[in-house]
């Protein structure tokens, strides 16, 4: 355990998987510390799943290396997977097997599964293990994947877009589970393409774009990076506090049109809410920008990922 604490939970060095035509993963240098929750953020096709498959030893890197708790992901893949719980981006088909049989089947291969833990996670997510896999909704399939990933109390969890298909209540339950698992001593590496999601649970975030890691940031920096597009509609005939809004910290790009104001908001909402004190707001719509919008806002559009990384 002491040795594990000393080495990185995940370390990659120049890890590359070239699929040609600019697709793949290129020269990934990444280090995730033990007991850290690391969010791996990127738009679709950025290389998140490719990275995860390299870590799981499922695909052979074109170049570079990856280590989990000091073990080579390719050479020592069996030993690596003893320490890892894995949730794939899409659950495969198990046809007419029941949920309980899928768990027994894959748990039988792994060994060391705690039935009490299985029961507790299944109950927590209201997942009926007596039903057949083909009868499960996509959300229930994802829940089964979560049980499979967590059921043996792994040291490291590698989760590929874990909340896809889960409803908001189950997403919250999942975030709680991740927090508890981290508190119990595990490291968690999860991928997502939604910035607000990783904010909920992660200590640090790595942002990947076009196969290259462009940014590794802690939560404070993420909070600085993120912004919202706001649309405020005021009651007809009421006063629009344009000046107060323009002077509020974090508010930019203010456009006034009749009784509607659109603007972007960085950081916390507190200064804006203070500026709106006494105003008659009848509608407020907040849009979370996509990752691409964040990139275009914070980095010049013509800048290459390599340049951004520098």
């Amino acid at each position: 355990m002491l040795r594990e604490m000393a080495v990185a939970a995940i370390r990659t060095s120049k890890l590359s998987k070239d699929y040609g035509h600019g697709h793949g993963l290129f020269e990934l240098d990444l280090e995730v510390s033990p007991r850290e929750v690391f969010g791996y953020l990127g738009p679709n096709g950025a290389g998140k799943s490719t990275t995860i498959r390299c870590l799981m030893g499922l695909i052979q890197p074109t170049f570079g290396s990856a280590f989990i708790f000091g073990l080579d992901c390719r050479r020592d893949s069996v030993a690596v997977k003893r320490k890892v719980g894995y949730l794939p981006g899409e659950m495969p088909q198990f046809g007419s097997l029941r949920g309980k049989e899928v768990i027994a089947y894959l748990g039988g291969m792994r060994g060391g599964v705690d039935p009490k833990l299985v029961r507790s996670i299944a109950e927590r997510f209201s997942l009926d293990l007596g039903r057949r896999f083909r009868e499960y909704s996509s959300g229930n399939k994802k829940k089964l994947g979560i049980v499979l990933a967590f059921m043996h109390k792994p040291d490291l969890l590698i989760l590929d877009e874990p909340t896809g298909g889960l409803d908001p209540l189950n997403q919250q339950e999942f975030y709680k589970l991740v927090g508890e698992t981290r508190d119990a001593g595990a490291t968690i590496f999860l991928s997502s393409h939604i910035l607000s999601e990783v904010e909920h649970v992660c200590d640090r975030v790595g942002i990947i774009r076009s196969g290259r890691l462009v940014k590794v940031a802690d939560l404070d920096e993420i909070h600085r990076i993120r912004f919202h597009r706001l649309e405020l509609e005021f009651a007809p005939g009421s006063e629009v506090p344009e000046a107060a809004i323009r002077s509020a910290t974090g508010v930019e790009d203010v456009v006034v049109s009749d009784h509607t104001i659109t603007c972007t908001m960085k950081g916390t909402f507190d200064p804006l809410l203070k500026a709106l004190a006494g105003a008659s707001v009848i509608n407020l719509v907040s849009h979370e920008p996509s990752l691409e919008e964040i990139f275009l806002t914070y980095y010049r559009a013509d800048e290459t990922p390599e340049a951004i990384a520098r």
């Binding site: 069996v78 997977k81 794939p88 291969m109």
Partner: peptide, 9 residues
């Protein structure tokens, strides 16, 4: 893929 995520070669 899911089978190979277990500690089996």
């Amino acid at each position: 893929e899911l089978i190979l995520s277990n500690p089996v070669s």
